[in-house]
Every structure is written in C-alpha cells, then in structure tokens.
Nucleic acid binder design. Structure first.
Length: 578
RNA sequence: GGACCUGUGGUGCAGCUCGGAGUGCACGCCGCCCUGUCAAGGCGGAGGUCGCGGGUUCAAAUCCCGUCAGGUCCGCCA
C-alpha cells in the first residue's frame, strides 16, 4: 500500500478499493453518506471520502447517522452474487467484519448533500462548508486547482518568474473603485487594495524581471454580477523586449495547456479578429463564435428607402433560423429589449412561402423585400430582424438580440477562443470634454495611428487586445508606453496635467526615467476560465467562499461593524446615516 | 441608482389568476418493525411568524402599498 493516500489514520481512499484488494484488511476514513438498516442483525453504510463511496457491511445495528465522521476497519470482500452495484465504482466489493470508530458526530444537515435537489443558493452560501462537501463543488474546486497548477507550470516553462506584489497599495483614483484600508500608524491616511497589479508589474519590467507572472488576487469595489466578484483571481503577466504577438503566443500556450488539462481537447490555434470586425459581424467586442447568426449590413440596399424607420446612417439585419414561429408576445419582448438598449425600434420579417410577413411588409419595395428575404441565406420559416441607427448602436442592439435568441448554455458547444485586436484607444469624451481611455493611460497607440492622436483621436487604435472564449471576456492586455514623449501626448489627450500625472503616477514615471525596456502584458480571469470549463454560468460555483450580489458573505456575516476600540485606533467615526 | 424574477415546516415543490380553517406532494427528522440493501422497504409521529410591516375585506399565503433577502440584467467594472 505504497501511496500518498495513506495517512496515520487510514490506509487508502475508498475509491482505490477494487477487486484486487479482496482479502485485505484495511482502514478507511470519511463521512457517512447513507445507511440502510435491516433490523438488529444487518446494516449497510455508504462511506464517502473525496474519492467516492464504499459500502461497509455491519452485522448488528448502527449508531451512526448521515455525515458522522467515522473510521472503519474492515475486510475487502467480493460482493455476493447478484448484489453488485454497477453504478458505484467500488460496486463489486464491500467492507465486511467492520469495526467502526466515530471520530465526530453530526447533527442532521440543513440541506441534502447529494445532487438530487437544487438547493437555494442563499442556503448553500450560509452553510458553504457543507455545500463544498458536495460532489459538484468538490469537482469544480479541484478542477480549478488543476487549471491553476497547469497555468503556473506553463508560465514557468516559458521562463516567466512568479513575483508577489503588495496588497496594500497607494490610491490612484482612476478606473475601478478601490477598496480602501485605513492606516493605523498614519492616522487619516489610507492604503487601497489593488484593482490589479498593473503598475507594480511595469515596475518589475524596469527592475529587470523581463518575464513576470503572478496568480494575483484583484479587488474592485464595483457592483457584482454572475461573472464578477469583488475579489477575483487573474493570471497576470508582463514581458520585456516583446511585441503584441509574443504576448499573445505566451498566453495562448498557457491557456491551451489549461484547456487540455481541463477538457482533454487541444484548442489549436486561437482565432483573431479586429475590434471593428467583431462589432460589425457580432455586435460586440466579445463575440461568441459557437454559433452563426452574424449581422448583415444592408445600408446600401436601404440607402434611398421610403420606409421612415429605415432612414438611418446604418441598417443592419440578422437572420434568426426557425424564428418565424416566435409568438407576437415574444417579438414584442425582443422589441422592448431593443428599446432598452437604445434602439428606436425593432423591425421583424417572417419569411414565409407567400413572402414576408411583417407590419412593415406593405411599405417596402419588392427589391427591398428580396434583400430582406435573402439575408444570410434566409429560408422559409426564418425570421429577419432589422435595426436602423448609428452603426455602433445598430450593431450592439442586434448583437444583444443575437445572444438572447441564439447563445447555447455555457455547458454546451465547442470551446471557441478568439483574440480581439486593435481596440480603439479612446472610448469617447467625458462630461468635461476630455477623452476617456478605453484601456488604461499607459496603453501604446497603434504605431500607424500615432500622428492622429491630436488631430483625430477617436480614430486612433491601440495596441490592446482581448482574449474571448465563448462570448466571455477572459482578459485583456496591451503594449505599454515606455517613451515619455508618447506618454505625455496621451496624458495631454486625456486631460491629465503634468502635475496631476506626477502626483498620481509619479513613481512610475520616475522609474521610466532610468531605463525602461519596451514591454507588454496581459491578465485574464481564472474564475471565468474555470467556470466555462466547469460548464457553469456563474463564477460563484468555482469560488470556495463567494459573496452575494449585494456583497455580503452569508456565512461570516461580513461586512460587519467593528468595535469602538478598533475605530478609535484608526481614528475613524462612522458618518451619521442619511 | 434602476428593471425584472423568487421568498410557503429542516430541504425541494404545489397552492396565489378567481380571498373562505396552515390544505397537499416528495425528501429529510423522530419512534417501532425488518438478515443483502444500495435514493432500501413497511407502519406511526413531530415539525409552520406562508420573509417582514402596513392596508383593503366579515375573512388574506392569495388582492394593494412599502420593505428586507437571494438571483438575472442595465448603469458601473481605466
């Protein structure tokens, strides 16, 4: 029994017990999964540990109940003819002549730990220590551990060095809202928890660590979603003397290794498309390539249309296969969704054998009708949806409807990775007329667009890139600015004065004066990657102790008030409510 | 900040439209019976602030208003 499963208290995990062990007397430990009593002479006990279940036969009555922790010593015995259980990995054998030692008694648990019923999530979170005893959570968290180990191993093999960066960092008010930590020794002053190790890793580049990575916890005090927790884990990396393509190759190798570990499939080379192409074809910067329903641009065909609703800079359409059977109520709901996303309306056309069926049918010309009926190779029984508006809005609205109508569940379909490149440098203009950085202010503009920063900034592309998997944004990265002249121009475009830049990022700009190598990096969310591999649609399922959507920890009760003494030490006083 | 969904013994549901005694189902729990079960089986039993507060009504789980909690989404997430 030479294995790592054995401990001083047990010889093996129950899942290892096979017919080859018949005759051996062994000791195993675990939880009582179920018991079946047959009077005072015979009882069965299913012992559960992380490896599975094993039936123990007890001659006599049992004084254990479900979830008792027990240590059983018994003889591995082939089950009598006709009593094998093929649904159990260990179903050919059982432990007989059992000696039972109760290591810990258990009260009845507040919800069943088997997988037969779906338990309300708030109950699961309140008793998370019981929830993670369940098989699905065991599987998810163990999958996560394997993915993280694989990522570390791949990064190490690619000669990256793992360096830890501080959790107590300096406030740099920008981007995501930061969690604030009061300082006791410097009363009235604060640390913040890092929303990412962005600046720290750039300093590591200046410091000569030309390939850095970290499995890094990031903290952002923003509202929560199915794919967003306050704290999440990223594979964070940065490298010097590299191009965007080098970074994409590093990341692709690490993610592919994780994918093979998690799914058994080699994803092959990741697709690449530009941000404009993604927006045009899929109406989003994180396209889900598992299904078609690509957007079609009909602007030319409707350039001189008489239909008021289609008189717009851009007319886009999408074919919904089989969509002609959608009810009027469903179509109304889709129209409402389109309106909430900013569209003035949504036009729909059922493709029937007799032609187009639509409230607008009698207003369109035969030529327009032919174009609509042929969108994306539409056939009888399909539905064609049309949104006319500005290009970006029409695209985004149809992109959202595409997901509503076509996206498969997370657990279905192939894994389709895609790099989205050439993001715009600036997202738009804020209330004060300053440009807003799409990524962060250290992002290098696309080399071809450098001379338009001042003249036509909104057309400037950046050397920023996202990795997208099945419609989830896994992460993003960019080539960083390492030359102060370009950095000055970007700060200036963003309306950040020299003084402001100095006070906010002075230590970084200072560091760049002493020999900053060209560098670039990336970071992607491990929680999201593992969630997709696990086939679950929210990251709480792959986090041991997550928060609710309102940021509460139902198990610990956090957030909570602290003692008067703690407040005094920190010289803090809660403001009166209201 | 906003929209929508959910809240009924320990668990999962039904009951709510159309008001009439806390009504029902399954699991669990407790007791008794049972020597090959494996989601064991049989018999019996306990267990409820229908999330909370207010209103309408002769009467509210059910209708109305408010509120809390959980979820999904918008805003937010450089």
């Amino acid at each position: 029994m030479d294995n790592f499963e054995a401990t001083s208290l047990r010889d093996a995990l129950v899942g290892s017990v096979t017919e080859e062990w018949v005759g051996r007397r062994i000791t195993v430990c675990g939880w009582v999964a179920r018991r079946r009593e047959h009077g005072e002479h015979l009882a069965f006990l299913d012992l559960r540990d992380r490896s599975g279940l094993l039936q123990c036969v007890v001659e006599g009555s049992l004084d254990v109940r479900p979830e008792y922790v027990v240590r059983v010593t018994g003889t591995v015995t082939r089950r009598p003819e006709g009593t094998r259980n093929d649904r159990l990995a260990t179903g050919a054998v059982e432990l007989t002549e059992c000696d039972l030692e109760v290591l810990s008694a258990a009260e009845p648990v507040p919800f069943p730990l088997d997988e037969r019923v779906e338990v309300d999530e708030s109950t699961r979170l309140r008793y998370r220590y019981l929830d993670i005893r369940r098989e699905a959570m065991q599987r998810s968290l163990r999958l996560r551990a394997r993915v993280v180990a694989t990522l570390r191993s791949s990064m190490t093999a690619q000669e990256f060095v793992e360096v830890e960066t501080p959790l107590l960092w300096a406030p740099t008010p920008e981007g995501a809202r930061e969690f604030v930590v009061p300082s006791r020794l410097h009363s009235g002053e604060f640390y913040v928890l890092p929303q990412s190790p962005q600046i720290a890793k750039q300093l590591l580049m200046v410091g000569g660590f030309d390939r850095y990575f970290q499995v890094a916890r990031c903290l952002r005090d923003e509202d929560l979603r199915a794919d967003r927790q306050f704290e999440f884990t990223q594979l964070d990396l940065e490298a010097s003397f590299v191009t965007q393509e080098d970074i994409m190759a590093f990341v692709s190798r690490a993610v592919a290794a994780a994918a093979i570990e998690a799914t058994g499939e080699d994803p092959g080379e990741f697709a690449t498309m530009t941000w404009s192409e993604a927006l045009d074809r899929f109406g989003t910067d994180k396209p889900d390539l598992r299904f078609g329903m690509e957007l079609q641009n009909l602007s030319d065909a409707f350039a001189s249309t008489a239909v008021k609703a289609f008189q717009a800079p851009c007319v886009k359409a999408m074919r919904v296969p089989g969509g002609a059977q959608l009810s009027r109520a469903r179509l109304d709901a889709l129209t409402e969704q389109a309106r909430q996303l900013g569209a003035k309306g949504l036009a729909w056309f059922r493709v029937t054998a007799e032609g187009l069926d639509s409230p607008l049918a009698r207003f369109i010309t035969p030529e327009e009708s032919a174009v609509l009926a042929g969108v994306d190779g539409a056939e009888t029984g399909d539905l064609v949806l049309v949104v006319a508006d500005e290009f970006a809005l029409a695209s985004r609205v149809l992109g959202a409807l595409r997901l509503t109508l076509g996206a498969p569940p997370v657990s279905e379909g192939p894994y389709r990775y895609v790099w989205v490149t050439e993001f715009p440098m600036f997202e738009g203009v804020d209330d004060e007329g300053h440009l807003v950085a799409a990524h962060h202010p250290f992002t290098m503009p696309h080399p071809e667009d450098l001379d338009r920063i001042e003249t036509d900034p909104l057309s400037v592309r950046s050397a920023a890139y996202d990795l997208v998997l099945n419609g989830w944004e896994l992460g993003s990265g960019s080539v960083r600015i390492h030359r102060s002249d370009i950095q000055s121009r970007i700060f200036s475009a963003l309306g950040i004065s020299d003084e402001e830049a100095e006070s906010r990022f002075g230590f970084l700009l200072g560091a760049f004066k002493y020999g900053a190598p060209p560098h670039a990096g990336f970071a992607f969310g491990i929680d999201r990657l593992v969630a997709i591999f696990a086939g679950v649609d929210n990251i709480r399922e792959v986090i041991a102790f997550p928060k609710t959507q309102s940021g509460a920890d139902l198990m610990t009760g956090a957030p909570k008030s602290i003692t008067e003494r703690q407040l005094r030490e920190l010289r803090l006083r809660p403001a009166p409510k209201g």
